[in-house]
Design a protein around this nucleic acid. Structure first.
Lengths: 337, 337
DNA sequence: ATATACAAATAAAACGTTTTCGGAAAACGT
DNA sequence: ACGTTTTCCGAAAACGTTTTATTTGTATAT
């Protein structure tokens, strides 16, 4: 391993000079700096992140926290996509990505200690019930954090514009002539509440009545509960003409159940998803859904986190809302009025 | 930040004693050790990974290399799933995951330097054209590496049993009565070659002739080239009754093109995919495909990498083949003979 | 009693950086 | 000629650990 010391010897200068030359410090002669840089190049010098980290107390790393209990981690398209763009943007800004678990280790057995152990400059909290507590603890520990979807005090939050997304979806369905609209929502959480509120509000604005039995609660990304909710909705005396699902995956489950009941999509029942996943885009019939802009969300998250790191104590957290776009497919039938 | 020094003062012992007590060294009295551990707990001590890394020259990190040029990274279900299980297994064995890019940074601008900069104990090479060169350089640099799918000298490799997978697929299709079987292969690479060889061999064993025009080359995960290949195959005077695609995504593209041509699946043309993605499982008709066991692949990769790290110089790389399983769907028609 | 072994604890060096402070030499102004 | 500034470079401390070699004190064997 080539170290600063070796370069210093090779160049007949001090370690300090080498360090400064390689970091572009202003108090090194141009000629000397060039000579040192050339030698470093030739000898294949690579700095030691660990030594830097130790000395400067900066790791140039962002930690990413998933919920590794429930399988809602990397495997989910939404998170994978968001992580991909987050990573890309972070790298552009000089940060590497570290995957943080809550598994036991030399640090203890929680996310926050893990992030501290690795000295992450900032942390992206992707999801999980414990998002809020994690966020709080990170902030307490002085580690800047950005949360996705969930709102955490003193943390910036990135989320899709669920309110507008849902409103657009309802308006679209309404514009296609649907007046008996059912909705399946995911488990209770901030996002669900926003979407539900927007659903009720938009329906009210459009003069669409929403009987209680038209609204069901299931779980995100859970086929079984979506199927159950669908069965209940289909059994209703006045069957809804359209069902809104909490995500594309659930919608697929619902679609399967609808067809199993001998009904056609969108002939007998129209459906919509949420997310704009590959599943929705390549399902046949192509699913009508709301596309979450994971790319922009990832980029915004990285930028925000970098800002939080740089501004330090004085950082003012904020809510960042990323627009989502209606993705009309073939699962919503145009009804004659 | 609580350091060993502070604990030493608090406990009236030396730093060395604290270090050893916390690491369970044998030459510390039980009573003293207990006292120190309790104090560490109370004061909220968390060790510094950076200092450890610097001193021991071990980071307890695995780097993961994607191809971040082409978008074939995290966003791909196969890799995301594999990474998920790799991560989980690695964490169980005490390794954290670091995402390595080839972006420019303090290390230079290639994957290998990046991994060296971060002092990764081992590296998982997920994919990319430059897998081979990366692997070589890592080995040269003394960093253990494990490659996925590609074969690299002095690196262990993890891959699906492509040969058996393809053979089973062909036999299954044959068992359903198909005798005019077309195949679309991905771009040339070890995996493609294995699958192609297995295809030809199995066809020969079954007495199925494969005219050259029944075989097309496209790109993995590329819809356009799959569509083009499909168009060519459909235009053939003697249209194949079944088309094997290189992956599920490509198969979806093919299916779209087949239906656009006014043909039905599997009524007029049968198709198969490869991977066993969500796309295949929830496509309608449900796609017949070969499921790659990403879970076992990830686990095997992590275990192998840990082994490589522990055994050091004397490590003997090997090829690890993970079985894949035929996943019959509804896209292969049973033909009357 | 002395030598020998062992247990428990420590001092100190080292890992590879960054950075503060200061010094030498050269350039400048008078 | 002298003081002053500027330019370039180096000495040394520090970051938080691990680890080797050593010391101190106590128990065992002769």
């Amino acid at each position: 391993m080539v170290t600063l010391k070796m370069l210093a010897q090779a160049c007949n200068v001090s370690i300090a000079t080498v360090s400064k030359a390689l970091n572009g410090a202003p108090d090194i002669g141009l000629e000397t700096a060039a000579r040192i840089q050339k030698t470093a190049q030739q000898m294949g010098y690579i700095p030691s992140a660990a030594a830097r980290n130790l000395k400067t107390n900066r790791s140039h790393c962002f930690g990413v926290i998933f919920d590794d209990g429930t399988e809602s981690g990397l495997a989910h398209e939404f998170f994978a996509n968001m992580l991909e763009s987050f990573k890309h943007q972070a790298e552009l800004m000089g940060y590497d990505i570290f995957l943080i678990s809550g598994q036991p280790g030399p640090w203890g057995s929680d996310y926050v200690s893990h992030a501290r152990y690795r000295n992450c400059d900032g942390v992206l909290i992707m999801v999980g019930d414990n998002v809020v507590s994690c966020g709080q603890e990170l902030v307490m520990a002085g580690i800047p954090a950005v949360a996705v979807d969930y709102g955490v005090d003193n943390c910036s939050t990135i989320h899709s514009d669920n309110v507008r997304g849902m409103a657009e979806l309802v308006r679209y369905v309404h514009s296609q002539g649907h007046r008996t609209i059912a909705a399946v929502f995911g488990e209770d959480c901030p996002v669900t509440r926003l979407r539900a509120a927007s659903f009720y509000r938009t329906c009210a604005e459009l003069g669409v009545e929403v009987p209680d039995e038209y609204v069901r609660t299931s779980l995100y990304h859970d086929m079984d509960s979506a199927i159950l909710a669908t069965r209940q909705l289909l059994a209703l005396p006045r069957r809804p003409t359209c069902i809104l699902y909490p995500d594309d995956y659930a919608a697929i489950g619902g679609m399967n159940e609808i067809e199993r009941a001998g009904l056609s999509i969108p002939g007998d029942v129209s459906v919509t998803g949420f997310d704009g996943s590959l599943l929705a885009r390549y399902a046949r019939p192509r699913m009508t859904t709301v596309q979450q802009n994971t790319r922009d969300m990832g980029i915004a998250a990285a930028r925000e986190l970098a800002r939080a790191v740089e501004e330090g104590r004085g950082f003012l957290p904020r809510d960042i809302t990323i627009p989502c776009t209606l993705l009309p497919g073939e699962t919503v039938r145009k009804l004659g009025l």
